[in-house]
Design a protein around this nucleic acid. Structure first.
Lengths: 341, 341
DNA sequence: CAGATTTGAGATAACGTTTGCGCAATCTGC
DNA sequence: GCAGATTGCGCAAACGTTATCTCAAATCTG
């Protein structure tokens, strides 16, 4: 049988009440009593039962993470940051993933409610979709992650704008002046925001952008095709000398395409990606300089914010953009150090 | 305030005891009474409080998933399969990821114990490592996933042997006779098992293997390098006509290398990968035929097994190998259908 | 029709913890 | 040295549920 507070109390020769208060640092009591109880707890390796604690307090010290991110590309870093941010406050995270299946979503949400979760993190995979819109009738404190939310909701999303700015700025700083932008479908807000930021950054710095942003798929193929299209048969002076790619897959395809054409990276063309998806970014030749969206940090912030919300502290509604940072590898020719923003 | 069983009981005009029994389908009682209680519960949208249920029953209806898989490549599919397998038994999954940090592991495990998890899934990323060895002093029912475990432990791992066999067999079935194998470091059991299975399958079928298995890194680079090494300047009749690659990244590099050399895939050389990591397998040109390790199913089995263990049912100790299946795309020239094994 | 058995349902305790209230014992000010 | 404040601690209730025991009424038995 597990050791309960009763055991601690009897070993310390006090009542259960006193034991509870001693361990929680509450109530008035002789310092000697308090340490005696604490020693007893240590001796017995006492650990309070979260369930019982939750029952009386009406809190479960549990957060629910509901996600529709089938693949886990975004959710897992977020979940790791989240869980580790709250674990030392005694809070754990329940994982519930419905694979875009509304019925599964309902069951999972219900299960979380039955479990009296103190708060809910609703995680998506696109910042312009609100996949959880219909679910939110409950009064549970909620934050949104990687998805859209109501005006009075609280959301955490990557700073696409800032990320695109530092990517573009980095290329400018390296002396590039003919900077193109190849990115994903214009239907994605992330693609549009990054493209606008790219345009704005260039004009803010008094530089011209090289053609308009080129929207397409989030795929290697798109990058590869565009490499051929932009560089095949084109005189060097007219072609871009840098390309900011909307994600690492596009960047990967772009580098492959350029290599195929014999265009040097980074000597002839500098490439910046977006996502810092290790498996791609470290595998390109040369290794890819790219933007890290700080998803772990995003999870951490969302978790701490949710705890504040639960504790009744005032939290401003609206979207928080977690800072992105530039991870410098070798595809731009810069010295390799991280620059936080 | 949440509606409790007390509310249901009073609406139905019975005692709390009777209400509990009616809803759980236990005890003797008039059929009319039972339906009356159930109707009351429906009317009030009553949902039992898992916490209270757990407190009295000594069970929390919660499983803990402890993982050191930093990147989430393996853990997330497993977690999804696991959570969805147990959710309709009213069980949820707590996610705890320590990033190879022993201290974090301790804290997380402690947190899971405080929460009275009914069972533990210890997930790793290599089948020949037991990262959780030191942690297991608690008497909580435990299954291991994607990691080694004691002889009297219960583990679930992919069927590397079977996967390698169907991969090799597939190449044989397509008439290939000079089949090479390029894989990861020999230090990985997964690489060794796959290599042995490849050798055995060939000799079982009376075929010779083309050279010895070539160990190296789990990287695209390794695949690319080997493509050059195996095919550069080699007359067609001496070179392999098929290559079974130890994972999708190697396969990716291999295809890139072959394409670079002008060797046709699948016409000149058929390629099979391993992992079915969509992002790679679908991005190669041509799309990659590969082995799917069935990680979602693995998670499902581990979850159901753990529930059996918790319920005191007899469970045989030892390793269970979840079947792998061949996912046919276009890198081997076969018709595109899935073949289960 | 009296006793035995079954049926239906309630009272109460228990799970492990926190918390409001109460009550001695000690301290304080004059 | 005495009223009142303070200190130190325990009693008992509460959280929502299930489980054990009890008991009256209904039904069966011969």
């Amino acid at each position: 049988m597990r050791v309960t507070i009763r055991d601690v109390a009897s070993l310390a020769g006090v009542s259960v009440t006193t034991a509870s208060r001693a361990l929680n640092g509450e109530g008035r009591m002789a310092a000697e009593t308090r340490t005696r109880v604490q020693d007893a707890a240590t001796t017995l390796k006492y650990r309070p039962n979260s369930i019982a604690k939750g029952l009386v307090g009406g809190r479960s010290f549990t957060l629910g993470l509901l996600t529709n991110d089938t693949y886990g590309r975004f959710t897992l870093p977020v979940a790791a940051g989240l869980a580790n941010a709250v674990v030392d406050r005694g809070v754990s995270v329940l994982l519930a993933s419905y694979q875009d299946d509304p019925e599964l979503a309902r069951i999972n949400l219900q299960s979380l409610e039955d479990r009296q979760v103190d708060g809910l993190i609703l995680a998506g995979k696109r910042i312009d979709r609100a996949p959880h819109a219909g679910l939110l009738k409950s009064g549970i404190p909620t934050v949104h992650v990687m998805s859209a939310c109501d005006d009075d909701g609280i959301g955490f999303v990557p700073d696409d704008d800032g990320g695109a700015r530092i990517a573009t700025q980095h290329l400018l700083d390296l002396g590039r002046r003919r900077i193109a932008h190849v990115t994903g479908p214009a239907a994605f807000a992330a693609a549009r925001i990054r493209a606008e930021s790219y345009v704005r950054t260039l004009s803010d710095m008094g530089a011209a952008h090289w053609g308009d942003p080129i929207f397409g798929a989030w795929s290697e193929q798109h990058g590869f095709d565009l490499a051929l299209q932009l560089f095949d048969g084109k005189p060097g002076a007219d072609a871009p000398d840098a390309i900011f790619c909307g994600n690492d897959q596009i960047a990967r395809g772009m580098i492959d395409g350029l290599t195929h054409l014999g265009v040097g990276v980074p000597d002839d063309v500098a490439i910046v990606g977006f996502d810092n998806w290790e498996i791609f970014a470290a595998a390109t030749r040369p290794p890819l300089t790219t933007i890290d969206m700080g998803l772990v940090e995003l999870g951490r912030q969302a978790g701490l914010c949710l705890l504040d919300l639960i504790d009744g502290r005032e939290v401003a509604s609206g979207l928080t953009h977690t800072p992105s940072r530039l991870v410098i590898r070798q595809s731009c020719g810069a010295l390799s150090t991280d620059i936080a923003v």
